Simulated scan of single mutants.
Amino acid sequence: MPSTTSGRIRRPAALIGAALLAASVAACGSADGSSTAATLPSASASATAGVLGISDPWVKAADKGMTAAFGTLVNDGDADVTITGAASEVSPMELHEMTMKDGTMVMQPKEGGIVVKAHSRATLEPGGDHLMLMNIAKPVRAGDELTFTLTFADGRTQTFTALAKPFTGAQESYAPGHGDSPMPEMNMSPAA
């Protein structure tokens, strides 16, 4: 994680991280030979347009039902950015959060979207904010690459790709309408 001064990420470290992320994505192409590098913002676009950098994106492998996507959202811009929606070809999606309700940790839609403050990061993680795939149309197997499109409050969109990984932790309970089950102890690390 870049060093901070008074809670703000130092721009050189953040820009270097964004450049490394863009370079690593540029080295990976899709099966048809095209590159996904154009879907991620460059460091300068991130700083001027307020578009997010996305590091370590991943999705929990699942055979059916629901699953979720995670990663770290980086805002090197001078204005807050609000994600108001997410989409995938695999399933309808919602922005979700985990919160305490009547003494139980439950998952529910995140009202107002996910805000990434200027010059900061927001983590999408099991047991916290995440992008929820509501009813997957086909199994998501470890090693699959899924494409997601984020929609921002100002109408802009951004696409990114996440790798599916096996993960047994954070079996969250669901808010009313999503089912009710007790939440067991949570393991926050994906299997490699």
Rank of each mutant, 00 (worst) to 15 (best):
L40K: 00
R8V: 15
M132E: 10
P184A: 11
A175M: 10
V59W: 02
D129K: 06
E94K: 14
L73D: 00
L21N: 13
G7H: 13
L40C: 04
H178C: 11
A61H: 08
W58N: 10
E172S: 13
S3R: 11
I9N: 02
G53M: 00
K64A: 15
G113H: 03
A69D: 08
W58Y: 12
G103D: 09
K60H: 01
L150N: 05
S91E: 07
S35K: 10
D144R: 11
D129Y: 06
A122V: 02
G143V: 05
F148W: 07
R121S: 14
D144V: 09
A175K: 11
K101R: 15
H130D: 11
H96P: 00
E172D: 12
F152E: 07
C28V: 12
A79Q: 14
S173A: 12
A122R: 06
Q171S: 07
P126I: 04
L40A: 03
V74Q: 01
T147R: 11
S6P: 09
I16F: 10
G50I: 05
A164V: 05
F148S: 05
L163E: 09
G112H: 08
E89F: 05
S46R: 08
V51W: 02
F167L: 08
T36W: 04
S3W: 09
N135T: 10
A86Y: 03
S173V: 06
D144Q: 12
S46Q: 13
K64S: 15
S44A: 11
G29S: 12
P109E: 07
K165V: 09
A37F: 04
P182F: 00
P126G: 15
A26R: 15
A86N: 08
S3A: 12
D102F: 04
Y174Q: 12
G103V: 01
H119D: 12
A164L: 05
R11P: 14
A68P: 02
N187G: 14
G71K: 02
L163A: 09
V115M: 08
L73W: 01
F70S: 03
G112T: 10
R8G: 09
G127K: 03
G33S: 13
T99I: 04
L133Q: 09
G85R: 10
R11E: 14
A31N: 13
T149L: 04
G128R: 03
A43Q: 03
Q158T: 05
P182L: 00
D154S: 07
